[in-house]
């Protein structure tokens, strides 16, 4: 196995609310190598979203260590984490999380604003990625003028625009029709195979998970299975 880009070591996450403790994750240890396409599966409430948020540096674990590209995330300041989220991770939310009443183009340009990309090149770069996800003709549409699938594709373009090494997607096809889901999975496979992006994706649909090379099963905050895909993926380049 190549160098792990993601390495978790006995990670746990406990929520304390009104004196009661809820264990969302306990003792999670795994590695993901550079260039892998991993699906995380599990029933709702299993802690898979919590895990994803920790992997995306959107949240901090209660205990354990998380090495992202060999950097210990616990030891980084909030501002350093912001830089990591900006440059190294592209996060695709289940709820899209686009800025409301704002054009697709402006939404995709937003990470570049915070990433110190010179203002001149931003629009061109954003247009390139919007075209890639098939929204070349929807650049000036605001979020509420787009369908769920289109919003999800804007979110994908936004996640890709900083050219991050890792793409994290939380149920990217959860809210959209199956034909659009297939389009999005095609984009993911292309990114993984042609551009070498590491992709970690949460899904509860087995046929979506089949697009990944590896499936991690999570239940009750624990990893209960970790398997390579049996089915040989079509059009896979050796």
């Amino acid at each position: 196995m190549a160098t792990p880009i993601i390495k978790t070591d006995h990670i746990s996450k406990v929520y304390r609310m009104d004196g009661t403790q809820t264990v969302a994750l306990s003792d999670i240890s795994f590695e993901i190598a550079k260039g892998e396409f991993v699906a995380i599966m599990g029933p709702s409430g299993s802690g898979k979203s919590t895990l994803m948020h920790i992997l995306g540096a959107l949240d901090r674990p209660t205990a354990g260590t998380y090495l992202l590209n060999n950097q210990n995330v616990e030891k980084l300041s909030d501002d350093q984490l912001a830089d990591i989220r900006n440059r190294e991770i592209g996060f695709i939310f289940q709820a899209y999380n686009l800025l409301p009443r704002t054009s697709s183009l402006a939404n995709v340009m937003l990470p570049m604003t915070y990433g110190g990309i010179p203002a001149k090149g931003r629009a061109d770069k954003a247009k390139k990625f919007l075209t890639m996800v098939g929204l070349g003709d929807r650049m000036d549409h605001t979020s509420n003028q787009l369908s769920g699938g289109q919003q999800q594709r804007v979110a994908i373009a936004r996640a890709l625009v900083m050219d991050p090494a890792i793409l994290l997607a939380d149920e990217p096809t959860g809210n959209i029709a199956s034909d659009q889901a297939a389009e999005i999975m095609a984009i993911f496979q292309q990114l993984n195979e042609d551009e070498g992006h590491t992709i970690v994706m949460i899904t509860h649909e087995p046929d979506i998970a089949q697009h990944a090379q590896r499936i991690i099963h999570v239940k009750d905050g624990k990893i209960v299975g970790d398997s390579r895909a049996h089915k040989q993926r079509k059009a896979r380049k050796k």
């Binding site: 995306g56 959107l58 909030d78 501002d79 912001a82 830089d83 989220r85 900006n86 440059r87 996060f91 999380n97 800025l99 937003l110 990470p111 915070y114 990433g115 936004r158 900083m162």
Partner: peptide, 10 residues
Amino acid sequence: LRKALGAKKA
């Protein structure tokens, strides 16, 4: 969201 996309607190 802005923080998630890389904006610093300040």
